[in-house]
């Protein structure tokens, strides 16, 4: 009795995962050989990767930006181009936009923890410069951008009709992706022909999961995945 254990080869991910695998191993699946497929069915939710987290906060006092620019190492301030100081932290890699009103926006972080760590660094830097920073300023996550892969090529034309032309935006002349706005969770999804997708506008990491769940369910229902 032969036992063949296998994981799906990467290129089968592009096709319908399980069906394609069974087809390949059908020839072997005779009486004396058992095929064990080690990996479970391809799950798009496992490919979700947070690409960017944007958060805002306020330290409670107004700031003298030119002075801060001089004292902060690597800070960038160009009044004509942007009305705030751009301060980039290395570890974690984020960029903090510090405004004169004392509000700070942190972008470029790859996780919510990174946002907090990055902002803590900025706070301590400011404190060491003699700025009286509020104790534990409230940090509000404004936007989370995540990417995922559905693992199958998409026919965007069919999806556009399937999801309803009033719910989507698909203008291949202007942008190759299909824009799908959903209310619950309130996010915007960009679907691409390669099967990759971007979820943006969420406030929680769970929003991206829920959105991917929803789109997979809807596309499955339409038979377009």
């Amino acid at each position: 009795m032969n036992i063949i254990a296998t994981t799906p080869a990467p290129h089968y991910r592009k096709a319908k995962p399980l069906a394609a695998l069974l087809k390949v191993y059908k020839g072997l699946n005779t009486l004396n050989s058992v095929v064990i497929i080690m990996s479970e069915i391809y799950d798009p939710k496992k490919t979700i990767k947070i690409e960017n987290v944007v958060a805002s906060t306020a330290i409670g006092t107004s700031l003298d930006l030119p002075k801060i620019t001089l004292q902060l190492d690597g800070a960038d301030y160009n009044k004509e181009r942007f009305p705030g100081v751009v301060y980039r932290t290395k570890e974690p890699k984020t960029a903090a936009l510090i405004f004169g009103s004392g509000k700070i926006v942190c972008t470029g972080a790859k996780s919510i923890d990174d946002v907090h760590n990055g902002l803590k660094k900025v706070f301590s830097e400011l404190k060491s410069m003699g700025v009286d920073v509020m104790d534990n300023p409230e940090i509000i996550v404004q936007n989370i951008v995540a990417s995922a892969d559905l693992g199958a090529v998409l026919n965007l034309n069919a999806i556009a009709i399937g999801l309803g032309l009033e719910n989507i935006e698909y203008e291949p002349e202007q942008f190759p992706g299909l824009v799908y706005r959903i209310a619950e969770p309130k996010v915007v999804m960009l679907l691409f022909g390669s099967g990759k997708l971007v979820v943006t506008g969420g406030k929680k990491t769970a929003d991206a999961d829920a959105a991917v769940d929803k789109i997979v369910e809807e596309l499955d229902g339409l038979g377009l995945l």
Binding site: L156, P172, P176
Partner: peptide, 13 residues
């Protein structure tokens, strides 16, 4: 091409 889904996500022109 449309049958083989070669046009999805490509500019029509």
């Amino acid at each position: 091409a449309a049958e083989k889904e070669l046009t999805s996500g490509r500019g029509p022109t």
